[in-house]
């Protein structure tokens, strides 16, 4: 088998893994968009916030330590205990639910009935707010996150592929774990929205707010639940990306990466988010591999957006989105 083809296969595999992670972030967007029509720009910052909170809780950091020290002249930094990863994840989830409640209570409730673009801007404001709060709470330095996920090259794949192609594929264990977790999460979310009472209520709200209200579904509850689920997805995404490249500001930028994924797949479709994520993941890795060296590299920065842009010109509602019907 020619060498280039083998390399390309490795690139595709890695692209698929990256794509799953994009899909994971995109899922958070789709959930909130479907249930409340809000395009939640803050999803990426929520992932950052979740990851920072997780690290902070695990290390026993005192929240707002810098601020407290600056105001009262004290020197508190750590409680002096460490919390095991699983307990910390559960505590962080509690924080995310609290956040969901606060967002619903203090922001979204006052903006019901506004135009979608106003809601979108509000979530941009929320993103800034959360980012500032996260930095104030836990400090802005880069942190390492280790919840015990396996990392490093997968030797079995390396060996097997070496036996077949005379070339060992480099695939990170973490990516494999992430893919499995993401797949499980997607399955769980689909099952949740299809087969549970709350999931049905959520879909009902997505379909028609007023009709849902009239059959006795509490909009407040559903919205808090949706934001909590999105917070959970953000937490998972935060753990994956945080373990991979450290917990730092750039983590919030994955939200921007998820946008073209959404546009490709269509804002309203869960399968769309997954397929879109895979297309973008593979596409940008392949493009960087094939064309990148010719034009100076780092094409990953823009490829996804340009692909989505070109795609949208031909199919404005995305792959699986609902057809846009315009009437006067």
């Amino acid at each position: 088998m020619p060498e280039q083809l083998v390399f390309a296969m490795e690139v595709i595999l890695n692209g698929l893994m990256a794509g799953v992670l994009y899909a994971l972030v995109a899922l958070g967007f789709v959930l909130i968009y479907k249930a409340s029509g809000i395009f939640n720009y803050a999803q990426g910052v929520m992932a950052l916030f979740a990851a920072m909170t997780l690290v902070g809780i695990m290390n026993g950091q005192v929240p707002f330590a810098h601020l407290i020290n600056a105001i009262f002249g004290t020197h508190v930094h750590y409680f002096g205990w460490n919390i095991p990863a699983l307990a910390a994840i559960i505590l962080t989830m509690g924080v995310m639910v609290l956040l969901a409640w606060a967002v619903q209570r203090f922001v979204m409730r006052h903006l019901v009935g506004q135009e979608p673009i106003i809601l979108f801007m509000a979530t941009i404001g929320l993103a800034y707010f959360l980012e500032g709060v996260a930095d104030l709470m836990w400090g802005s330095e880069i942190k390492t996150l280790d919840v015990g996920l396996p990392q490093g090259i997968n030797l079995w794949i390396d060996e097997t592929t070496f036996n077949i192609f005379d070339y060992g594929f480099f695939i990170d264990n973490l990516d494999i774990v992430a893919t499995i977790i993401a797949a499980l999460l997607v399955a769980a979310l689909v099952a949740f929205s299809q087969y549970t009472k709350q999931g049905r209520a959520m879909r009902a709200v997505a379909d028609d707010h007023q009709a849902a209200l009239s059959v006795g579904i509490s909009l407040n509850f559903i919205w808090i639940m949706v934001w909590s689920v999105a917070g959970f997805v953000a937490l998972v995404a935060g753990i994956m990306w945080g373990t991979k490249s450290g917990v730092q500001f750039s983590l919030s930028l994955i939200a921007l990466k998820a946008l073209p994924v959404l546009m490709l797949g269509g804002f309203t479709s869960i399968p769309g988010a997954i397929v879109g994520g895979l297309i973008i993941g593979v596409g940008e890795k392949l493009f960087e591999f094939a064309i990148g060296p010719l034009v100076g590299g780092a094409t990953e920065n823009w490829f996804a957006y340009v692909l989505a842009l070109i795609f949208l010109v031909f199919r404005p509602q995305g792959l699986f989105g609902e057809k846009i019907i315009e009437r006067v």
């Binding site: 105001i71 980012e131 500032g132 802005s140």
Partner: peptide, 26 residues
């Protein structure tokens, strides 16, 4: 106060103001 805290506070304030503006006076 240290400059980094002020920089973070600025993010919080800008974000909060934007939300406040959108709620009170779109």
């Amino acid at each position: 106060w240290p400059t980094d805290i002020v920089a973070h506070l600025q993010l919080v304030i800008v974000g909060g103001l934007i939300i406040l503006f959108l709620i009170l006076e779109p």
